[in-house]
């Protein structure tokens, strides 16, 4: 059967990795290509780049980063952050990205999900959703989780699924950065309504959290950033831990 995927996510600003320590085998820890290669060689099932550049101009450097990465990394690459148009998606896919993750652009104009999945196939369109609990409901937040869109997360996710999203990348804004584990209730609720794969993100701090994300949250893939970048947990450790708990995993 298909394996649970472990996905390290790299924050890239103006073409450079902004978080993370220097792994022993890296010449330049700030180079996203080297980081991606390192993770690929150490068992990552996919790589995710999140572009946090402030300006549009700087964001164009991402296309070059993707091109260079595709020369050396032979596992799937997802690129997200600041994607605002079909043209953006096209240039990233053309440069060698396998999937693009869209967030605000979908909120501003849901039709982009429909168009993009028709043009490029739904397998390359990931919709990223930042959810936060307020008054017993989860709402979709935008602008890095600072602005409440007023959209109910579950309704929104059903809508983008219907519009042709290939996967949902779900981040709990309540849990993100806390290292207290995934928001399992949120994951369960979303997993229940999804016919497409679910990538869980936000809050992972220990090996047990990864297991809960799959076992209780029913996520199909687990994305994490800081625990990997600061070498607190290695991908290999996660995979061996899950394997010993009888989760289908690629060792």
């Amino acid at each position: 059967m298909v394996k649970v995927r472990i996905i390290p996510c790299l924050d890239v600003k103006d073409g450079r990795v902004v978080k993370g320590i220097n792994f022993i085998d890296l010449v330049d820890a700030g180079d996203p290509v080297e980081q991606a290669k390192h993770y690929s060689e150490n068992g990552a099932d996919e790589i995710c780049f999140l572009d946090i550049s402030a300006s549009l101009e700087k964001r164009n450097t991402m296309v070059q980063v993707v091109e260079k990465t595709a020369n050396e990394v032979f596992i799937p690459l997802t690129v997200g952050g600041g994607i605002s148009s079909i043209d953006n998606i096209h240039s990233l896919l053309k440069a060698g990205a396998d999937k693009t993750s869209i967030n605000s652009a979908a909120i501003n104009n849901p039709e982009i999900v429909k168009k993009a999945s028709e043009y490029f196939g739904n397998q390359c369109i990931v919709v990223a959703v930042d959810a936060k609990k307020m008054n017993n409901d989860w709402y979709v937040f935008s602008h890095g989780g600072t602005k409440n869109t007023g959209l109910l997360a579950l309704e929104w996710i059903e809508k983008v699924q219907k519009f042709g999203a290939g996967e949902i990348l779900l981040t709990s804004m309540d849990k993100d950065g806390t290292k207290s584990g995934f928001d399992l209730e949120l994951l369960k609720a979303v997993s229940n309504i999804l016919e497409i794969p679910l990538i869980a993100s936000g809050g992972v701090g220990s090996l047990k959290h990864f297991y809960e994300g799959v076992n209780t949250g029913k996520a199909n893939a687990l994305l994490a950033a800081s625990v990997f970048h600061f070498n607190e947990i290695s991908i290999k450790e996660v995979k061996e831990y899950l394997f010993n708990k009888n989760i289908e995993i690629r060792l």
């Binding site: 059967m1 298909v2 394996k3 649970v4 995927r5 099932d45 739904n122 397998q123 290939g166 996967e167 999804l194 016919e195 497409i196 794969p197 679910l198 199909n220 893939a221 690629r250």
Partner: peptide, 9 residues
């Protein structure tokens, strides 16, 4: 099962 069948198998 989720579709597409996506991932390592």
């Amino acid at each position: 099962l989720k579709l597409p069948h996506m991932g390592w198998n």
